[in-house]
């Protein structure tokens, strides 16, 4: 079944067509990697899906529901989660508090008013264990290293438990071991979760991707498995600039 359907998506920033007639589908439980040179419109595409940017044309459907005119929080409630390129965690909150904010299955006021902020939770403990932040659970997020901050934001997305997760360069700044660990976590998520990942690290992409879309200048240049992409002439031209 199609989880996400993007049809003829357009957005312009002062004359620049950042995304120009992009169409693609993502199946339930699939990991789709978005590749492309800088400025190809990969991050913008994620912005359009999660609502950070409003499209100038086209349609975005999640489980058949048109979301392109909805506010961000409504899209999040429909199960769209986003990890940003620059890790955005709450630096003035502790690690567990960050996860508690991210656990937003019931985001209403009344639920929030009738709960204490930090009830012990098995789920949070498991997630902390998974990303190796158990020891630092009481530290302020602002005191974490760059790699740990990346892990924290991934942990927050796990806690949010969105069905459709948009990851913007999740392994930037990670060591090789950490990158492998991230790949393992992503593989374990696939099936139950649908992931769209923007990534430059090709070995990581080889590890996780079910399918790849290469973008260039706001349009889809190529689509297929890793082997198909690596032998595609258009892709070579776009990257090497011939």
């Amino acid at each position: 079944m199609e989880h996400l359907q993007v049809t003829d998506l357009h957005v312009e920033f002062g004359g620049l067509r950042a995304v120009d007639g992009l169409s693609f589908d993502v199946k339930q439980g699939e990991i789709l990697c978005l590749l492309g040179p800088n400025g190809a419109g990969k991050s913008t595409t994620l912005d359009l899906i999660c609502g950070k940017t409003q499209p100038t044309g086209g349609s975005i459907r999640v489980n058949g529901v048109e979301v392109s005119r909805l506010l961000e929080f409504r899209r999040a409630r429909l199960g769209i989660g986003r990890k940003f390129q620059v890790p955005s965690v709450y630096k003035e909150l502790t690690v567990v508090e960050n996860l508690s904010v991210a656990r937003s299955r019931r985001p209403g006021i009344w639920h929030a008013l009738t709960r204490l902020s930090l009830r012990p939770s098995k789920d949070v403990d498991n997630i902390l264990e998974l990303v190796g932040l158990t020891e630092k659970s009481q530290d302020l997020a602002g005191n974490l290293s760059h790699g740990e901050t990346q892990w924290l934001e991934i942990a927050m997305l796990l806690a949010q438990d969105s069905r459709l997760i948009l990851m913007d360069e999740p392994t930037a700044g990670m060591t090789i071991q950490e990158t492998q660990r991230t790949a393992e976590i992503f593989r374990s998520l696939s099936g139950s979760h649908t992931l769209i990942v923007v990534e430059h690290d090709m070995s990581f992409v080889r590890n996780v991707a079910d399918r790849i879309i290469v973008m260039n200048r706001g349009t889809k240049l190529a689509e297929g498995s890793i082997a198909e992409i690596e032998t595609n002439e258009d892709v070579k031209t776009a990257y090497l600039g011939h």
Partner: peptide
């Protein structure tokens, strides 16, 4: 209020309102 989840979400909003929207909070 400060120690309820409501208070926690408010502190999150204080620091980064946009990020909080992407978690589904109005």
């Amino acid at each position: 209020i400060s120690h309820s989840k409501f208070g926690l979400i408010l502190r999150a909003i204080r620091e980064d309102a946009d990020r909080t929207r992407f978690f589904g909070y109005n």
